[in-house]
Nucleic acid binder design. Structure first.
Lengths: 187, 187
DNA sequence: AAACGGCGGAACGCAACCGTTACGTCGTAG
DNA sequence: CTACGACGTAACGGTTGCGTTCCGCCGTTT
């Protein structure tokens, strides 16, 4: 019964508002204004701000990222880094993700939603990437995917989302070499 | 003329409010309530919320962290990781820092203040740590302090402030080994 | 042709907060 | 002892947002 195009407009408006003012200052009225719909259309779909944002975010967060097998660990790693780099450089992601992360520190429901999405991705990516490399003999047997993910995503997230410094052309390349060495050492 | 004890009460209240509700939802009235002072006492000191928070945050952020020379890169690194770990596990830091980082993505003035504090620390720590190690011959000549800082702080920040997973006993130790290997490889 | 239901718009009462002002208290400096 | 000034309290008018309700419009279903 609910009109689909209206729902889409609201979802887009929520994402934009999240990016612009953050969860803390996001208001239903502003979302309605931006989406060009009445408040009633929103309250017909969700009962409050938290529920609305959670439903929309979960939906976006659960889209799977396919990680193809390039045939070598260095190739896989560089591809992964490139994907993450591109994602983190999108305005939406670079504003919304840190904002929700911060909000998660005080709202358990947000925390749980994000953790689930994050951990699912981490595990999937980590286990596939490391598993493939171990199978190929490029990494030692006991390599911990958990630690590996920290070593891979941490620096990139730090640089792009925290320090907000640009990434030069050869950075990913050097970084790939460094991470490979690091993981070989921990095995 | 302004009473010092009142100023201190306000500063503490601001930090607590920042941790609890974040910058976006921080209100002058709530700060006054929490500090047990009148709004007038606040407006007598700062002219608005941004100015107040910036002044207080800058003050906290600029406290230097002394990094002693333990004699070896492994020792220096493990000590640094321990300091950062402890800092990031404090409730105040783990809530306020990500929150302000997120806010920085939309407020240039906050961004500038944080970047200055962050970059100053990064440079100081990075250059000292890496410089010492290079001098001792533990790291190759051309090691980039900038990249090194990413490799060191990134994973820790990721794990503690983003993924919010616990750090086990031997994590820092394994991590030290991994980072050392990584930095030797990039030289 | 009629009934249904989602739609936008407008307004509701309520609450919070803004930044400012007026007032009376109290400690201190002169 | 007096004057000053920082203090808390209280109130101001104005803004914003909440969640709800009622209205009239209009496309779809029957």
């Amino acid at each position: 019964m609910l009109r689909g195009d209206i729902t889409v407009a609201i979802r887009n408006a929520v994402m934009s508002e999240l990016a612009e003012v953050g969860y803390g200052r996001l208001s239903i009225e502003a979302v309605a204004r931006r989406a060009g719909v009445g408040k009633t259309a929103i309250y017909r779909r969700w009962s409050n701000k938290l529920e609305m944002v959670m439903e929309i975010i979960s939906d976006v967060a659960e889209r799977k990222v396919p990680l193809p097998d390039t045939g070598s660990f260095a190739g896989d790693l560089e591809l992964l880094l490139l994907i993450v780099k591109t994602a983190l450089q999108h305005r939406m992601a670079s504003q919304i993700i840190p904002d929700l992360m911060a909000e998660a520190a005080r709202n358990p429901q947000i925390a749980e939603t994000l953790q689930r999405a994050l951990r699912t991705h981490q595990q999937a990516v980590g286990e596939k990437l490391i598993g493939q490399a171990v199978t190929r003999g490029e990494l030692p047997e006991g390599t911990d995917p958990d630690v590996a993910v920290d070593m891979i995503l941490g620096p990139l997230y730090w640089r792009l989302a925290v320090a907000r410094q640009p990434i030069e052309d050869d950075y990913l390349e050097k970084f790939t070499v460094a991470v490979t060495a690091a993981l070989r050492a921990t095995g």
